[in-house]
Amino acid sequence: MFYIFCPYCKEHREEEEFHARGQAHLMRPSDPDNTSDEEWGDYLFFRNNPRGIHHEMWVHSVGCRKFFNITRNTATYEILETYPMGEQPTITAATPDVRHEQGVQVADGGWQTVGARSENKALNEEASS
């Protein structure tokens, strides 16, 4: 369950009040008459879908009904910031100190990785015996 800070209401509210609306900062082609099929297709259908830092648009649908953006880690589900439409994120995948490893936070606050990892040498050796 997300606890999301709405940048307009200035309050943390529960996930159920919000709706995810997909990738943020999509720019509609500025010159529609001279836009190729390739560019239209990219604009309409192709998305970043990263495992890690992602910028996405949400709407506070049963609150102020305004759209805003969230920077969130799609592997850990950590919400890093929320900011109003028209503004740029202050945290991106290139920001230092952003957690990049895959995995999930477990109930006791620890960290658990998913799938085989290159450092799991012991596991691999065991499996190949």
Binding site: M1, F2, H19, A20, T74
Partner: peptide, 14 residues
């Protein structure tokens, strides 16, 4: 599905 992009192999309570 949950409406947001997620790789966590778990979903939300709502």
């Amino acid at each position: 599905i949950d409406g947001y992009v997620g790789y966590g192999q778990r979903g939300s309570y709502p």
